[in-house]
Design a protein around this nucleic acid. Structure first.
Length: 255
DNA sequence: AAAAGAGCCAACCGCGATAAG
DNA sequence: GCTTATCGCGGTTGGCTCTTT
């Protein structure tokens, strides 16, 4: 049998790591490599659990970690990957060199999530949920009309989140053919900008492709090469793949 | 200037998968 | 084949800092 876990033994430190502890761990791993996490604390002279050491190394001490603010393209990528993968932070982080799953998760929760909510996108499913239906129809109704531009001139559109927005994607579907037939993402973005009263095109900065399309049945191919190593649910990550093999965005919000 | 609230992030917790005995 | 430890992951929390009142 294996030796018992010492993670919960008394005498192990918890909480923030001191510089001395960091140094001990770094020195040890530089000299000996990672090896077995359980044995590292003792060998390195640390009063920590192996689990804590592993976390500290992966999230903070690893030499290849990129620290500092996320670049715009990193943020865009996170949003797109989240739309495809959901909260599979390790998979998302795997596509962002130098970023950890914890960092990506924190950035999502503290920055991106808020940002999406602000512009009326549900961060859980990446669906637009707060476009003013009437305003959208107004702005789509006549090309001669100044579209949403007039809306913004009315001053603050406040943040009336009770406004009923209607936008569709292939999962939602819609009974409104006028909406379905509308496919000008620029106007949608203008609506969003006006509705949310945010600066010029945060939506553009997010690099979102806000197309509205007729619901359609996608042709799916299960892609198995991103199967999570351990989590059983789901056992496969399904991605939509076009016939040419190129990934098709799961949601129409992201091109 | 002080208090309260919000935001941020490092670290912990609990769970499932896997490996080892 | 069963039991138990370890690993890795996502969710959550605690405490620090910054901003607002």
């Amino acid at each position: 049998m294996r030796k018992s876990c010492n993670c919960d033994k008394e005498g192990t430190n918890k909480g923030a790591w001191s510089k001395q502890e960091d140094q001990k761990l770094v020195d040890y791993i530089r000299t000996n490599g990672k090896g077995c996490w359980r044995s590292i604390p003792k060998a390195a002279g640390l009063h920590r659990g192996g689990k804590s050491c592993r976390l500290r190394w992966i999230n903070y001490l690893r030499p290849d970690i990129k620290r500092g603010d996320f670049a715009q393209d990193e943020e865009d990528l996170i949003i797109k990957l989240h739309a495809l993968l959901g909260n599979r932070w390790s998979l998302i982080a795997g596509r962002l060199p130098g970023r950890t799953d914890n960092e990506v998760k924190n950035y999502w929760n503290s920055h991106i999530r808020r940002k999406l909510i602000k512009i009326g996108i549900d961060p859980n499913n990446h669906k637009l949920k707060q476009i003013n239906h009437h305003r959208l129809l107004q702005s789509t109704g006549s090309p001669a009309s100044p579209a949403a531009g007039t809306a913004s001139s009315s001053g603050s559109m406040n943040n009336d989140h009770n406004k009923q927005y209607l936008i569709t994607n292939k999962n939602l579907g819609s009974n409104d053919d006028r909406i379905n037939n509308y496919n000008n993402s620029d106007t949608v973005i203008r609506c969003l900008e006006n509705e949310t009263n945010i600066g010029l095109s945060t939506t553009r900065q997010l690099n979102l492709d806000l197309n509205i399309a007729i619901p359609s049945t996608p042709r799916l191919t299960l892609v198995d090469n991103e199967k999570p190593k351990q989590n059983s649910e789901p056992t496969k990550i399904s991605r939509e793949v076009a016939m040419d093999g190129e990934p098709v965005p799961t949601l129409l919000l992201f091109g």
